[in-house]
Design a protein around this nucleic acid. Structure first.
Lengths: 235, 235
DNA sequence: GCCGATCGTGAACTCTATGAACGCAAACGT
DNA sequence: ACGTTTGCGTTCATAGAGTTCACGATCGGC
């Protein structure tokens, strides 16, 4: 992972955050568009292209999004997380159309970056397994990982402790659980369990798949998907 | 809005769908990368730049994503909804990094496109009001609008995951399948498989034809037809 | 310190997606 | 033509999904 950041203090902080993240590694830190381009070129030539770039938008020798467009035109495949203190909403649209995967407002907490990186990792994971999508759902799921709000902000009606319990129960169950079974294991009702399981599916942490074979409406089997194969280093 | 689509039938269908959408207007329909670029150039020169492009990825003179990168490099600001029958998940990542706002698998229903366009309109609306973001939340909410969860309403008695499974099985079977065979492959009963296959026939995604030759009532052979012609909407 | 508002939970109920059973339709063979 | 054969298509029981609503806890306001 490449970090492009004007301010040395911020650059050091970002590097620290990233290094703390399992699965990520700060391959380099540069302070300008020109240096970033040079770094990416060299990495690609060396056969170890950079997978992810943390890109500040205001740089001394140009705008980060312009760099981004240059990269695309040059065929670079690195994904970009935009980082900026600009509050301008129109910039968000430009960032999306330049192909950034995340848009992070400065100043951000380590937790906020952690959340973004984790989601990005899962996104890569989903798209990385060289399979084919069976339907639109699968595509939407992957995009949802990039485009949903932070997980720490729970929807109304859900509480953090219960979510932890349910998520824990599901994680332990290797074979997958029905809503009723998860409820029994977590010590809550089927209804409550289902609420939290659905939330996990929404946020991409769990998958849901119907169990056919017996008569009656098929039972939904929830399966933990959260820590799926995050072994390889990204960036 | 510009529609870029190779197949004349699909292009006409897309145009029809778009025109039905309040707030959207099909400014033009082109059938190749070169024409698309020319159209966008001309529109920009005329002072009426195209805000949104519905872009098929497989075009006779090049790949849609390459066109997309060319557009970015040339400073075009149009947003892009990618449309493709390719199920390859790696393509999704490339599309995101090329700056598409939506990724829609062919064949899609009018309802699916409607949903995407409506969400896109809200996204534009959120980012368009020239205000400043008060925080990360606002940015996240705008991006979340590009995430889509809303499935097109299925007839009662049918479920989305099962439909995906059955459609997937049928798509993979080059030779065509009987209801019983499809059921076996999808892990559901013949009855259930038949329900979904009939639905696919109803929506024009599959064809059904009897197999003669052996003793007994002829077996019905279902064959995937989806990628050829988009589902015709009655009415 | 009391009261109203809100939030998370669970019980009761309705609805929906599935498969088994069964009658019937459609082709072949004689 | 008529029986044989095979699988279609329908009906129905069923079990679990999903919804609605009421209850208790907790929080903030006056």
């Amino acid at each position: 992972m490449l970090i492009v950041e004007d301010d040395p203090v911020a650059a050091a902080a970002h590097t620290l955050y990233v290094e703390r993240e399992p699965g990520f590694h700060a391959a380099g830190t540069v302070h300008s568009c020109a240096d970033a381009l040079r770094f990416l070129e060299r990495a690609r030539a060396a056969g170890t292209p950079i997978g992810l770039t943390l890109l500040d938008l205001y740089l001394p020798d140009g705008h980060g999004l312009q760099l981004c467009r240059t990269l695309r035109a040059a065929g670079h495949t690195t994904d970009v997380i935009a980082v900026t203190s600009a509050r301008d909403l129109a910039m968000v649209r430009q960032a999306v159309s330049a192909g950034v995967v995340q848009y992070l407002l400065k100043p951000f907490s380590a937790a906020a970056l952690h959340d973004r990186l984790e989601r990005y990792a899962r996104y890569r994971d989903t798209l990385g397994r060289t399979g084919e999508a069976t339907g639109q759902d699968e595509v939407d799921q992957a995009l949802a990982l990039l485009r949903t709000a932070e997980r720490s902000a729970l929807p109304k009606g859900l509480s953090a402790p219960t979510l932890d319990t349910v998520a824990g129960v599901l994680r332990e169950a290797s074979t997958g659980l029905s809503a009723a079974a998860a409820g029994a294991a977590a010590g809550v009702s089927r209804i409550t369990a289902r609420r939290y399981l659905e939330h996990l599916v929404d946020t991409g942490l769990a998958a849901r798949e119907p169990q056919y074979g017996s008569v009656g409406r098929p039972e939904l089997c929830y399966r933990w998907k959260g820590d799926g194969a995050t072994a390889g280093r990204r960036g």
